[in-house]
Nucleic acid binder design. Sequence first.
DNA 1: GGTTCGATCCTCT
DNA 2: GAGGATCGAACCT
Length: 202
Amino acid sequence: MNTRAWTPIPRSFYDRPTVQVAQELLGHYLVREYEGQLLVGRIVETEAYVGLDDKASHASVGRTARNAVMFGPPGYAYVYLIYGVHHCLNVVTERPGYPAAVLIRALEPVEGVEVMRRLRGGRADRELTNGPGKLCQALAIDLRFNGHDLCLGRELWVAQGESVPPEEIVRGPRVGVRGDERALTVPWRFAIRGNPYVSRGR
DNA sequence: GGTTCGATCCTCT
DNA sequence: GAGGATCGAACCT
């Protein structure tokens, strides 16, 4: 189980339409080096945030200090603090200057589960990584990773997994967003159908 | 320098 | 189902 390579996905993967990247990220792996151990989770739920016109996106207000990474090159982590309590991890997509990213909403724990349990205060395995804030706590991801290059295979990266066939993917509106009618209804959330680690949603 | 608020989670009812 | 936690950043004055 520890013999797997966990090869980083190349930057070119992220330099494509964000909704497509969000869908195709399902089945790949988020890998974290933490205190000499590997914490690995299979990506089972994502959401796309696309461009200035997406009123649910942090980038809809224009470029600011917080969202600057979203305007940068693809393949970097955009991490922010929400409600002063939890962190959320995004992967930046598309060309520099165009603000877009994919929020990682849920993982299926694969490796380093003991450490994840400890970081999550001994909660049930089902509750370790089934939400964007939860998975950041389980993998010790915080603001220090904002702007981190996810293509290097160091500290935090996305590793090559197996693609999920379309019939196994559920698609629907995003969770917890504010904004206009389009922001609330556009089906830019993707999840692996029936996977027990998908977040509760609304 | 002050105020407001959030792409969430947890606890209590 | 409701309410609170708790902080950085945005947006005032």
